[in-house]
Amino acid sequence: MTTNFENILISPDVKIRDALKVIDREAIHAVLVVLECNKLIGLVTDGDIRRGLINGIGLDEPVTEVMNISPTSAASSMSNEALKLMMQKKKILLLPIIDENGRLINVKTLHETLEIEKRENPVFLMAGGFGTRLRPLTDTCPKPMLKIGGKPMLETLINHFKSHGFYKFYISTHYLPEVIMDYFGDGSQYDIEIRYVHEDTPLGTGGALSLLPKSLPQLPLIMINGDILTNVDFRKVLDFHNENKTDATMCVRDYEIKVPFGVIEGVGNEISNIVEKPTYRYFVNAGIYVISHRVIESLICNEYLDMPTLFEKLKANGDKTLKFPIYEYWLDVGRHDDFNRAQIDIHDIGVL
């Protein structure tokens, strides 16, 4: 039983944005919504929030907009073994324990104490860019090898994947490839496998996929830009791709644009509406993808192709393409300001 389950209790008027902060802080992937006297009325998981984002629910809405109003719960009289079997059967990590009046008295969590399940899916790390916006830091060092928190960004990314059970890595190189290859070698010192794919000329993210060897495991591949700092749970991204039987999945970020003026709407000279200081929400590409093996096999070798174009082609061909919203920490380290911010953030996101 957890001794500090009070840390994941929130009231129904709490904003989704603030519930996310609790989920990230406590690393339990859920919060419980209660009334006074700990009367349980709902549960909110990170999956509930993702579905809400897809359906257009904003982060400033109350958690009641996305919460599960009938969460699985258990009585305090149940044995630990019975609780464990219930959680395994229902595939849940958190189980509220309630009394006969429906009041929350404890929480049972299924800690990940077992050996991490190995994932055979390959991971493709894009590390061939020039990093021109980070010069002079990148004059003699590829951008993914710049150190954040004392380690190259690429090493932190690899370690994060490794913590989720991934061990088969392919690294795309172009600019100063020897720096990367000399540092990581074949990956054996990290208990992983690394193979390198060298681009003689830049082929775009999608084009680099065409250089992967024929021996590539016939499983969906996770692809990520090597200059991204994130604590995304890559298992969930892969599970989403598999469960939805999609051909290509793109991770997206919720991005807001706040207009500091009144926006005038209308046709011609006619004013139909005035919206004062509106906020527009969009999903933007996060540089993380899952690509099915069949798609990789269909690519023309050495042909330039960026990922937006690949997704457009797949869509035009009738293939299934989906977006996966991520709310976890994410930073594209492309500019000096980003690099300086990453040096501070790295100590708080749990990936070192």
Rank of each mutant, 00 (worst) to 15 (best):
K236F: 04
L219Q: 00
G129S: 12
L212G: 09
L154I: 12
H241E: 06
I228R: 06
H241P: 05
E199L: 11
E193L: 12
P144G: 08
P177T: 08
K162M: 01
K162Y: 00
K151Y: 14
G187C: 01
E120C: 04
D233K: 12
K143H: 07
D239R: 14
N225S: 10
A208C: 06
K214I: 00
K168I: 12
E193C: 08
V179T: 13
D227W: 00
P122K: 06
F124Y: 15
R135I: 03
N225F: 03
G129A: 12
V232F: 03
T140W: 02
R195A: 15
V197L: 06
G165H: 09
N231E: 13
D191L: 10
L229K: 02
S163P: 06
G207Q: 12
K162V: 01
L203H: 11
G185I: 11
D191R: 14
T201D: 09
F161W: 06
F166Q: 12
L229I: 14
N225W: 00
L216W: 11
P177H: 10
Y190C: 01
I158H: 04
R133A: 15
Y175V: 02
L203A: 11
I224K: 12
I158R: 04
Y175W: 11
F169P: 09
S210C: 02
S163K: 15
G131T: 07
Y175M: 00
L211A: 08
E178M: 06
